[in-house]
Nucleic acid binder design. Structure first.
Lengths: 130, 130
DNA sequence: ATTTATGCAAATCATTTGCACATAG
DNA sequence: CTATGTGCAAATGATTTGCATAAAT
């Protein structure tokens, strides 16, 4: 299974770069503007291939579609409860996290995801009460 | 919107207690054995109501159905990549985690989820190569 | 040439919803 | 009584898949 360089695959990769954390749908909408013939299935397939190969990171969020990230260095994400905005979180001392997680219930730990939730600056201001 | 005590609601709560981290489907299968008239929609609805009210915790996992937990004290979860088993993780010093997470990209942080992934003891033994 | 990728439409999976009826308070 | 809950079946949303064709190597 040799991966090939198709136009669609590049377009998908570039869309994720440009859009910062898009969903598959968002990436497709973006691509579809200039390249109306690209199908949604192809976008999904290429997001899968690229995430599998490590070229992209898949961000799975509770309640909603997956997002995709072209930043590969380890970092976490936060989503605004109100507007859905997804942002990067560079956590200081996050190495500690990784250390703490070495043993868990006898499992062989291979990785972890951290998803924060809260209010983005704009929504926090707009809705002071929450 | 006063919550009422229905037989179905109790059955759903008890199923989650008994089964430890079941999905909605698993809870329904369990309940359905002794109470064949209970519908899946009702199980979903009550899981939602109970999670909303804080009586249960919803565990959202990447790639797959949500699980539900009757243990309310703060802890995290790990899922086996091979068999799907979900287990509790009591993380030492997890308070540090909470401290670290106070500020993130200017967001007002309200909570966080940590999902670990790896191999459960049984699968690790069965597939030494991974 | 041969294998991988694409586009389309249909299928799948988890979950939600509209509606008429049942039941808890 | 009256609001909330239930069962059913149909709808939804995200993602995947079968299949014939197209394109990359």
């Amino acid at each position: 299974m040799e991966a090939r360089n198709t136009i669609q695959r590049s377009l998908v990769y570039e869309a994720v770069q440009q859009l910062c954390h898009p969903t598959a749908e968002e990436a497709w909408t973006f691509i579809h503007q200039k390249h109306p013939s690209v199908s949604k299935a192809t976008v999904y397939r290429n997001l899968g291939v690229l995430a599998q190969s490590g070229a992209l990171r898949k961000i799975s969020l509770p309640d909603g579609a997956d997002h995709f990230d072209s930043t590969l260095s380890e970092h976490y994400h936060i989503r605004c409860r109100l507007c859905g905005l997804v942002a990067d979180v560079d956590m200081p001392h996050q190495e500690r996290m990784t250390d703490l997680i070495k043993d868990a219930a006898g499992f062989l730990v291979e990785g972890h995801d951290i998803i924060l939730k809260g209010l983005c600056p704009a929504c926090a201001q707009r809705c002071p009460a929450g």
